[in-house]
Amino acid sequence: MSSSFNFLAYMIYLPVVISVTWLVAITLFKNSKVFMLDIFHGNNELATATNKLFETGFYLLNVGFAFWIMKIAETISNPRSMMEVLSGRIGGFFIWLGIMLFLNLYLFFRGRRISKAKSKVIIPVA
């Protein structure tokens, strides 16, 4: 009787990727509130709402991607193979998560730059 480690691999993979996604989101969106307040010129209600929408999208994209790449096609027959498969899956997901983090930071800085440029525009009085 051959024993498969596939189920155990899934039971390790899911908590790891979901926990790390949660930790990254908490850090990112706690600190991005400052950018949102700057972008929306101190309008706390609008900044908070927009930040929450970004956060929701971040969770949906990243958890969705984690589930999408979760499938392990081969039968894992020993702990070493399980570690190799998990390191590839989790490592690939962490690279994706890092890219998404930097994409969000880019969007925050871009929004801030556009907001600053618009506030410098002087409208002539007729």
Rank of each mutant, 00 (worst) to 15 (best):
F29M: 07
K30D: 12
K30R: 15
N31C: 03
S32I: 00
S32G: 15
K33D: 05
K33I: 12
F35G: 06
M36C: 08
M36V: 00
D38N: 11
D38R: 05
D38A: 15
I39F: 02
F40M: 03
F40V: 07
F40Q: 01
N43A: 07
N43F: 04
N43P: 02
N44H: 10
N44A: 13
N44V: 11
E45K: 14
E45M: 13
A47S: 11
A47H: 04
T48G: 02
T48W: 02
T48Y: 03
T48E: 14
A49E: 15
A49G: 07
A49C: 08
A49Q: 14
T50A: 14
T50P: 00
T50Q: 10
T50E: 12
N51P: 00
N51C: 07
N51F: 05
N51A: 08
N51K: 01
K52H: 11
L53R: 13
L53A: 12
F54P: 05
F54K: 07
E55I: 01
T56V: 13
T56M: 13
T56A: 15
G57C: 06
F58R: 03
F58L: 04
Y59N: 01
L60A: 13
L60R: 05
L61Y: 06
L61T: 12
N62F: 01
V63C: 04
V63Q: 02
G64T: 05
G64Q: 06
G64E: 02
F65Y: 15
A66D: 09
F67Y: 11
F67L: 15
W68H: 09
W68K: 11
W68R: 04
W68P: 00
W68C: 03
I69S: 10
I69K: 06
I69P: 06
I69N: 01
M70V: 07
M70Q: 09
M70L: 14
K71Y: 14
I72C: 09
I72S: 04
A73E: 14
A73G: 08
E74D: 12
E74G: 05
E74L: 14
I76N: 01
N78G: 07
N78Q: 02
P79K: 09
P79S: 11
R80W: 15
R80L: 15
R80A: 12
R80Q: 14
S81M: 15
S81L: 14
M82S: 08
M82D: 08
E84C: 03
E84W: 08
V85H: 03
V85P: 05
V85K: 09
V85E: 10
V85C: 05
V85Y: 04
L86D: 08
L86P: 04
L86I: 11
S87V: 04
S87K: 06
G88I: 09
R89G: 00
R89N: 10
I90D: 03
G91I: 06
G92E: 02
F93Q: 00
